[in-house]
C-alpha cells in the first residue's frame, strides 16, 4: 500500500515529527519543583494514613522523587478539612491526596460543598476489603447463623461497631440490614483499631473491619471472620492463622448475604492538573506498586489489587459515587 505524498503534506508531516520530538521530552520533563504535600483526609494511625506513610517511605527509600514528600493529616470534619483544602488548591501540582470512602460520604452526609469532580483522578492504588467479624468465643460459625441469631434476638439487640458515622461501616451495616431484615444497633467509634479491640472486649457483637485492622486479633485467636463483602474470595492462599488463609473466608453471597462493598484507596490531584503532571505522579505510583515493600503490605492487608488510572479510574469513581448516593439515600443518611 503505497501512495505519494504532496510536498505540502510531507512538510506538514515533517513539522509534526519535529514538534512531537520536541514536545515529548517537554511532556516527560514536568517534575515537582518543591516539596510535595501528601494530604490524608483522616487522622493519624488509620488505614489511609498508614498507606500514605508507606508510600512516602517507599518513595524516600527508593529515591523515586527528587523533591521530598511530606504527609499532612487534615482529618477535621470527617475529612472535609482535607478535601476543601484540595479544592482550594486548584491548579497546584504540588499537592496530592489519598482518599477513602469519605470522598463520597462526607459531602453527601454533611452537605459540605465538595465533589470528587473538584479533583483530578491520578491512580487507584488498591481497594480495601470488608470482612464481617465476631468474637471467637461466640458460637456463630458462619454469616447465616449470625444473621439468624440477630434476627431471632429482636431489633437493636445486637451491636455493630464501626468507624465514624454515616461512613463506609455504617453504610455497609445498612446494606446488611436491608438484605437480611436483621436490625443492628450501630455504634460509631473513632478508629478501626479501636473498633477491633471493642469487639475483642465484647463491647460490641460484630464489626465490619478491614482485614488489616483486625488481622492481629484474628491471628491471636480472639476474633473470627465470617464472610467477606466482595463478589469473589480474596486470592491470598498463605495461612494467616493455623488453619485459615484470607482466601478461605467465604464471600457473604456464598453465605446467603448478598451484600458487597469495597473501599477506594486512590490518589487524586487538585482540579485543573495538566496531563503531564498527572502522568508524572502515575509514573511514580506505578514504580511504588512494583516495590517488594508495597507487595508485602498489600498481601498482609489482604487488599483487592485492582489498580486503575486515566479514564477507567474516573469512570470507576463516577460509578461509585452513584452507588454511594443510592446506598445512603436508602439508609436515610443524606444531608437534609
Amino acid at each position: 500500500m503505497t501512495y505519494r505524498l504532496s510536498f505540502r503534506s510531507r512538510l506538514a508531516a515533517l513539522a509534526g515529527v519535529l514538534l512531537t520530538a520536541m514536545s515529548v521530552p517537554a511532556l516527560a520533563a514536568w517534575e515537582p519543583t518543591k516539596t510535595v504535600e501528601f494530604i490524608v483526609p483522616a487522622g493519624t494511625g488509620g488505614g489511609a494514613d498508614q498507606m500514605a506513610r508507606l508510600i512516602q517511605s517507599i518513595i524516600a527509600k527508593h529515591n523515586l522523587m527528587k523533591q521530598p514528600m511530606v504527609v499532612v493529616n487534615k482529618g477535621g470534619g470527617a475529612g472535609a478539612e482535607g478535601f476543601l483544602d484540595m479544592k482550594g488548591a486548584k491548579g497546584d501540582p504540588h499537592k496530592i491526596v489519598i482518599t477513602l470512602s469519605n470522598l463520597f460520604t462526607t459531602p453527601l452526609a454533611t452537605g459540605v460543598p465538595f465533589n470528587w469532580k473538584d479533583l483530578t483522578p491520578v491512580r487507584m492504588m488498591a481497594l480495601d476489603e470488608f470482612v464481617l467479624w465476631v468474637n471467637s468465643e461466640t458460637p456463630y460459625k458462619n454469616a447465616k447463623e449470625y444473621v439468624d441469631a440477630v434476627k431471632a434476638g429482636g431489633a437493636n439487640k445486637f451491636k455493630m461497631g464501626g468507624t465514624g458515622s454515616k461512613q463506609e461501616d455504617q453504610i455497609l451495616t445498612a446494606a446488611i440490614e436491608k438484605q437480611s431484615g436483621a436490625k443492628f444497633t450501630y455504634i460509631p467509634y473513632k478508629g478501626g483499631g479501636e473498633v477491633a479491640t471493642q469487639l475483642v472486649g465484647k463491647h460490641v457483637d460484630s464489626t465490619v473491619n478491614n482485614p488489616i485492622e483486625a488481622v492481629a486479633q484474628w491471628r491471636a485467636g480472639s476474633l473470627r471472620p465470617l464472610c467477606v463483602f466482595d463478589t469473589q474470595r480474596m486470592p491470598y492462599k498463605e495461612k494467616v492463622t493455623k488453619d485459615m488463609a484470607w482466601g478461605d473466608i467465604p464471600t457473604c453471597k456464598e453465605a446467603g448475604l448478598d451484600a458487597n462493598y469495597l473501599m477506594l484507596r486512590g490518589i487524586f490531584m487538585p482540579g485543573g492538573a495538566t496531563p503531564d503532571q498527572v502522568a508524572y505522579y502515575v509514573g511514580v505510583l506505578e514504580k511504588v506498586s512494583q516495590t517488594p515493600e508495597w507487595k508485602k503490605f498489600i498481601e498482609e492487608g489482604a487488599f483487592n489489587t485492582t489498580a486503575l488510572k486515566g479514564k477507567d479510574y474516573a469512570d470507576w469513581v463516577a460509578k461509585n459515587e452513584q452507588l454511594h448516593q443510592n446506598l445512603m439515600k436508602e439508609a436515610g443518611f443524606l444531608a437534609k
Partner: peptide
C-alpha cells in the same frame, strides 16, 4: 494494636511498615 496517643499511632504505623504486626 490500639495507639494510646497520636505519637503512638505513628509509631504503630512504623511497626507495620517494618513488617512487625503489633498485637
Amino acid at each position: 494494636g490500639v495507639p494510646g496517643s497520636p505519637t503512638a499511632a505513628v509509631l504503630l504505623g512504623g511497626l507495620l511498615i517494618w513488617g512487625l504486626q503489633p498485637g
